[in-house]
Amino acid sequence: MIQSHLTAALLFSLVTSAVFAITGKETDRERLLNFVWLFSLFVIVTLAASWLMNFGHR
């Protein structure tokens, strides 16, 4: 069972990016690139927002 927030956020990012890429693009190449782009954005924004909230609570 998933016990860490980071693992849960990564799983969420992975699945959501995959579905967005598959349903949103036409060719396999476009889908792959879109998946990588979306997943990277999800992870970067999640980590950035987490650190911001962490600093905000200090």
Partner: peptide
Amino acid sequence: LLLSIATLFVAGVAM
């Protein structure tokens, strides 16, 4: 799509 969505759903239930 089946793998992705089923994984998310099952993980939600597991949590």
